[in-house]
Design a protein around this nucleic acid. Structure first.
Lengths: 202, 202
DNA sequence: GTCTATAAGTTGATAGAC
DNA sequence: GTCTATCAACTTATAGAC
């Protein structure tokens, strides 16, 4: 719909390949092969090389697709309307972060598992990277502080780390353990309730 | 030193292979190959197969070497003497967890990046797995509660998740960004100070 | 832009000598 | 237990036709 009419019309191969890559990345991790990706995308392997140059280029492309989103936790968080009840609001934020991290878990895993990919991340760390999520969450907290719903003396960055840590931790264990995680993990509500006194106005 | 004199004397190949595997795992992640491992261990490739059967067996062996340690966060935490100052103690615990997670990051990354490895984890989840770290930390909190240094009403499991989440989060970003992380991450002390009101006795 | 064909190398794994 | 030798399958990547 938003496609330009100029240039060669896209045949959707690029998109299909990217989608397939994400799929495979979620299953095989970095054991991902261009052949398998091509097979899933219903495309011939050389098309992958045509579009992305080489295997690392393909990996970069999928990661690049997601990394900006890392910085956009506000998309998730901003939409959630504050109820005024601190515990409920904290639970909503943690829950939002949890869903966000669950979605990008394969990409995060790949980043963790490959030296070359990590080097790439360090190179471009100003623009992209999971650490950028810290900023919008801290910003959200500062807004709440201005509204008088969170204590003035709170270190917004540290508060953000705690919220992100909790959300990510829950996401990680759910990703690793699947359905079994529910039996081991404390529920979001408990975590929010536990954290609330640290955020509450004196 | 602790070797038994019975049976064939170990020639250290097994140990060398395991060590090399960890090394490679930290760099290449799951792109780890038996050939490369053998080369680093200074051993012939077929020895790897002799000892571990196949590639997955090798991966299992290194992971199995570390997973029990996941449950043993107390080794780190128990050694740290409580100062009586809640913020300082929380900082020590988070710092300990951070160092622990930094050490096992490659293994955690591998776990995250491979479907087969995750299935294995689910299978053996009662004995091994990162979620087991939750228990000793919660236990530590309960001990502090009994000693009257942490509020009675605190949900120990939720508190543990927050501490672990904070430590893991800091470790993850340091692992991904290297030295650059210091500029982005709030220091442990700030995090501990922020979290303290949630743990303090009324 | 997508295809076929193929090069050149690496992979996990086994058999059998010592 | 460790070695040499070897295998088929698979890997990334390229050239060139359409």
């Amino acid at each position: 719909m938003t496609e330009s009419r100029r240039g060669r019309p896209s045949t959707g191969v690029r998109e299909a390949v990217l989608k397939a890559t994400e799929e495979v990345l979620g299953e095989a991790g970095l054991a991902l092969s261009t052949k398998e990706v091509a097979r899933r995308a219903g495309v011939v392997e050389s098309s992958v090389f045509y579009h992305f140059g080489n295997r690392l280029g393909l990996l970069q492309a999928v990661i690049g697709l997601h990394l900006p989103v890392f910085a956009d936790a506000t998309v998730v968080l901003g939409r959630t309307r504050r109820s005024g009840d601190l515990t409920a609001d904290l639970a909503a934020v943690i829950g939002g972060l949890e869903r966000f991290y669950l979605r990008i878990m394969p990409i995060l895993g790949a980043l963790q598992s490959d030296l070359k990919l990590r080097e790439l991340l360090v190179e471009r760390q100003a623009e992209v990277g999971p650490h950028l999520a810290l900023k919008p969450v801290a910003e959200l907290l500062r807004a709440e502080q201005r509204a008088g719903r969170v204590r003035e003396s709170l270190d917004a960055a540290a508060g953000a780390l705690l919220l992100i840590g909790a959300g990510h931790q829950r996401a990680l264990h759910r990703y690793l353990l699947g359905g079994l995680a529910e039996g081991v993990l404390p529920p979001v509500e408990s975590v929010a309730e536990t954290l609330a006194p640290a955020f509450a106005v004196a």
